[in-house]
Design a protein around this nucleic acid. Structure first.
Ligand SMILES: [Zn+2]
Ligand SMILES: [Zn+2]
Ligand SMILES: [Zn+2]
Ligand SMILES: [Zn+2]
Lengths: 141, 141
DNA sequence: TCTCACTTGAGATTCATTCTCACCAACCAG
DNA sequence: CTGGTTGGTGAGAATGAATCTCAAGTGAGA
């Protein structure tokens, strides 16, 4: 239950928080902007403030419930932190986002950081390209 | 000569553009924000508009003279596109930026994109961590 | 139910970046 | 050299994502 998740991380269980978490669970797209979340909730009849969405997302992130990604050009997107770590590849034409995990790269990153005298705490890897004809739904150009 | 570079990419040779390119050449830090460039030029007596800096940087980027990086939290930084491609590792305490190149990772990225049906056109890889005691100049915490 | 610290919604605010527009400066033909 | 044309520039206004403010609302323990 989502209420559990909130309690576990020390956040009071409130309607807006539940709605936001719920939407992240069930939305068609795994990666959503604050604006999108706000709009979708508003359209489905909720009375919610945009500030509340941003606030909740920041809290969820701090609590490790979600992760934040900044793909080039676009606004910040959030996704539920479920399952194993992964990185992203984004189609620069249609915006489609695919996920991948590559052990070789992950390991290598740690080695590189170590070699340079850093203690690795995080990383951001995003590939950009064009997805192949059939899949690409670019709105013409 | 910087005038050449500008002409080669089809940009008219003007004083502001030369000053900005020159600053990127000689600045202490390889990675600079638009604001920093603006401030440094202003302080050294130039009369230049912030809009001009942003405009020029956008044009330089489009022309491939510089690259743009968006490290998490901070504002966008630009650096001269000289020498081979590299990625970055940033200290989350003191902000120091080191560069690295890793063939294994670069190759792997291409394979991953291919496997997923993408034609890779670009990528952004940034590692975050803490640099070791001696080198870290964190302003206390 | 009562209470109160924590939350929320609406709107104001911030701040990086972009836009507007009257003025100005490269560049070239004359 | 010029003068004209074209594109570039500076100042300030505008934009837009994200944050802050604050009066009003609401969970959850007593
Ligand atoms: Zn990864
Ligand atoms: Zn993802
Ligand atoms: Zn790379
Ligand atoms: Zn660099």
């Amino acid at each position: 239950m989502e209420s559990e998740e909130l309690r576990n991380v020390g956040l009071k269980v409130t309607t807006p928080r539940l709605k936001i978490l719920g939407l992240l669970e069930n939305a068609k797209s795994k990666h959503m902007t604050a604006e999108t979340i706000y709009r979708q909730l508003s359209e489905s009849g909720e009375v919610i403030g945009l500030a509340t969405v941003y606030r909740a997302l920041a809290q969820f992130e701090a609590a490790g419930l979600i992760t934040r990604h900044q793909f080039e050009g676009g606004q910040t997107v959030f996704e539920l932190e479920r399952g194993p770590h992964h990185d992203h590849i984004v189609c620069v034409r249609c915006g489609r986002v695919e996920e991948f995990y590559d052990k070789v790269i992950e390991d290598r990153q740690r080695e590189i950081a170590e070699k340079l005298g850093f203690t690795l705490s995080d990383h951001a890897l995003t590939l950009y390209g064009e997805c192949s004809g059939g899949t690409c739904t670019a709105k013409n150009g």
